[in-house]
Design a protein around this nucleic acid. Structure first.
Length: 569
DNA sequence: AGTTTCGGCGCC
DNA sequence: AAAGGGCGCCGAAACT
């Protein structure tokens, strides 16, 4: 029997709790408990806890060794509902939601706290505005009605549940951390960069490469300063607009090779070097602080340490504990499969209904077996590519998979026209997203972010007084919206995958330690690895059915059971 | 001196 | 003529 309770943290750290009836209204007296852990532990029959903020409460539960089955995060729900209602940018705190309910002055959201290297994750968000249980329940009841009023209440309710589950998973990952061998990391750095010199300057290998670059130019050039490099090329008679790698690669000059190698290693040094290790790895774990729902598309972000950008060479340092394994699982061709599921394109659903390489199938049908071209065409359609071979390939794609291409084209048009665009479950794209892009001329005005909040009906006003401005902005919005429906629907699915996987891991020692868009890592005892592999496959299929309803589309994963992350794939 | 933007690149 | 989405991170440059 599904039991739902609500919990509100009081100023003194105690909590109020109350049972909720099937209608979501209180079905019993409000009781006080000394803390959330005590309240939850005393009620194992509860299957969903309604609370203001998972980020506030889950760490306290985890610290006490208490697990909840599911939750409903009121502030996550408020964010999703506001977006869905086209009110992006309005304050999303529970206190703001209450004020809107009562018609009072709406408090602005507290500023985001920024990540500090090595900072302890606080058990409380210090600036959070808490609500008494009665107020929290009023907001919750209002949110239930707002779900009901949406175009697809079931989907939106599922999205809220999924987002809440994601926040539980994020809290658990933040507590677990990613197993990290600092000694291995140091060895990798030494192999790549050479010795460090006293005083914090460049390590040996970078100094050598800088010398090579200078020698090639015949004067001292600092390879880490783009302006210096561009000038040096100019003096050597080579015109170059930037020092981007793809641009340098086309040049014929002896400085190019050491320069590119310098930039590659410099990047490792500054972003994942010794000071990174010092800042972010503690007690054998890297804790990047995952933030579920951190982007408008629903993808997660990490706060600190570049947790979602771990370079391939550095993954050597991610090593399972003795006797344990890492199950590294990567969704196969997630984006086109999601496009098949949301567009219901018959041809694309057919190829996505197989677990074999989807890009190969697409290329067999539309690109004479050229897989690389097929992949470029599909990604180009999803990302809004509009030039080069992309256009030609897009035409071929359109002939074979017309509904799929039409789906993203429609999204792009809606975005250009300032209409609301949603993921499959109803996460909504902010109307002005991408507006800052495309203003290639300096000095062009950009959309005022504060204006987006109060101009629900006027956000699409064209600015034709500035030739080129409105159109390039609109096109940027179109590309954003085109990508949004696919990337965001994939994020919808990924949340349900995580929720299902979390459920299975609860019965084992296995812990979810990493999630990156379409990839998960589970850390588990060796003997659980096979079970985890199966659990991931099952979770993927379950997530597919739950998210998209009946669909022939399959969501296969490539899994590897390894001791070291670098040995996967 | 402190804060914001830019250039470039890492990941998906 | 050229026009690919989402992020985070760093140091330098540009700003206040």
């Amino acid at each position: 029997m599904a039991e739902r309770w609500a919990l509100a943290v009081a100023e003194d750290g105690g909590v109020e709790v109350a049972a909720l009836g099937p209608d979501g209204l209180p079905a019993g007296p409000v009781r006080r408990e000394p803390g959330p852990a005590e309240a939850v532990r005393a009620r194992p029959e509860v299957t969903r806890w309604v609370w203001r903020s998972t980020a506030e409460i889950a760490p306290r539960l985890l610290a006490a060794g208490v697990r909840v089955e599911r939750c409903y995060d009121v502030e996550a729900a408020e964010t999703l509902l506001l977006g869905h209602e086209g009110r992006y940018g309005e304050p999303r705190s529970a206190a703001a939601a209450l004020a809107r309910l009562h018609g009072g002055p709406v408090p602005p959201d507290p500023p985001q706290r920024s990540a500090e290297p090595g900072a302890q994750s606080p058990l409380f968000e210090p600036q959070a505005v808490r609500l008494p249980l009665s107020d929290l329940l009023a907001v919750y009841a209002g949110q239930q009605r707002r779900h009901d009023r949406s175009a697809h209440p079931d989907r939106l309710r599922l999205l809220t549940a999924a987002e809440s589950a994601g926040m539980l998973v994020a809290a658990e990952m933040n507590r677990a951390g990613l197993p990290w061998r600092a000694d291995v990391h140091r060895q990798v750095l030494h192999d790549l960069l050479g010795e460090r010199y006293a005083g914090g300057g460049e390590p040996r290998r970078l100094a050598e490469l800088a010398e090579e670059v200078s020698a090639a130019f015949g004067r001292r050039v600092r390879p880490d300063l783009p302006a210096d490099v561009v000038k040096a090329f100019g003096q050597a008679g080579v015109k170059v607009a930037s020092t981007r790698r793809w641009e340098l690669e086309s040049l014929d000059h002896p400085a190019v090779k050491p320069l590119i190698e310098y930039k590659r290693l410099y990047r490792i040094w500054v972003a994942h070097g010794w000071s990174w290790l010092q800042d972010w790895v503690r007690d054998g774990r890297f804790r990047p602080e995952f933030l579920a729902g951190g982007t408008v598309t629903g993808r997660w972000v990490t706060n600190g340490g570049g947790g979602l950008q771990i370079p391939k060479v550095i993954r050597r340092a991610v090593v399972a504990d003795p006797g344990w394994r890492l199950v590294v699982a990567d969704a196969d061709q997630m984006e086109p499969r999601v496009l098949a599921a949301i567009s219901r394109d018959p041809g694309l659903m057919e190829v996505a209904g197989r677990e074999t390489d989807l890009y190969q199938s697409v290329s067999d049908r539309a690109f004479s077996g050229d897989r690389a071209q097929a992949k470029l065409a599909v990604l180009g359609a999803v990302y809004g590519q509009t030039s080069g071979d992309g256009l030609k390939n897009l035409a071929a794609l359109r002939r074979r998979f017309p509904r799929a291409v039409a789906y993203v084209d429609d999204a792009a048009r809606a975005g250009e026209e300032g209409r609301l665009v949603r993921t499959w479950l109803g996460r909504t794209c902010p109307p002005a997203a991408g507006a800052a892009d495309g203003t290639e001329e300096a000095g062009l005005p950009q959309d005022d972010p504060s204006g987006a909040a109060d101009s629900a009906g006027s956000g699409d006003r064209p600015q034709e007084w500035l030739p080129g401005y409105a159109s390039s902005n609109a096109r940027a919005r179109g590309r954003f919206a085109r990508n949004f429906v696919v990337q965001g629907s994939a994020a919808d699915w990924a949340l349900l995958l995580l929720a299902a996987l979390r459920r299975t891991c609860a019965d084992m020692a296995a812990e979810l330690v990493f999630f990156q868009h379409d990839e998960v890592i589970v850390h588990c005892p060796e003997e659980e690895a096979d079970t985890v592999v199966t659990a991931i496959r099952d979770a993927a299929e379950l997530a597919g059915r739950l998210t998209f309803g009946p669909t022939p589309v399959r969501f296969p994963f490539t899994t590897a059971v390894v001791e070291c992350y670098a040995d996967a794939k």
